[in-house]
Amino acid sequence: MTNEEIHRYVIEKIRLARISKGLSQLEVCTRGNFSQSFYTHVESGRNQPSLMTIIRIAEVLETNPREFFPESEIKSKSEIKKEIAALLEAL
Rank of each mutant, 00 (worst) to 15 (best):
C29I: 07
S44W: 07
R66K: 08
E83Q: 14
M52V: 10
A85C: 05
H41R: 14
T40N: 11
E59T: 08
F38N: 05
T63S: 15
P49E: 04
T30F: 07
I74Q: 14
P65W: 11
V60Y: 03
I57W: 02
N47F: 14
A58S: 15
P49I: 07
Q48G: 00
E67G: 06
I84Q: 15
P70Q: 11
K82T: 14
S44L: 09
E83M: 08
E62R: 13
R31I: 03
Q36F: 04
M52T: 14
V42S: 00
P49Q: 01
P65N: 04
N64M: 01
G22P: 06
K21M: 06
E62F: 00
R56Q: 13
L87Y: 14
V42E: 02
F69K: 02
N33S: 13
L88Q: 15
V60T: 12
K82I: 06
E62H: 14
S24L: 03
Q48N: 14
L23T: 08
S44F: 02
L16S: 12
L88C: 04
Q48V: 10
T63C: 15
S76F: 05
E27A: 13
T30A: 07
L51P: 03
F38K: 07
L16Q: 14
L51M: 13
P49F: 09
T40C: 03
N47R: 15
S50L: 11
P70C: 13
T30Y: 10
E89A: 15
C29V: 08
G32H: 11
G22D: 09
R56M: 08
L61G: 07
S20M: 03
R66T: 09
E89D: 15
K21Q: 12
F34C: 04
N33G: 06
I84C: 06
Q36Y: 13
G45A: 09
K81T: 12
V60Q: 00
S50H: 09
R46P: 00
Y39K: 02
S44H: 09
E59A: 03
S20I: 00
I80W: 11
N47G: 02
S24G: 14
I55T: 07
A86H: 08
G22W: 03
P65A: 11
T63Y: 02
N64L: 01
T53R: 14
K82C: 04
R56H: 12
R15M: 05
A85H: 12
V28Q: 02
S72P: 01
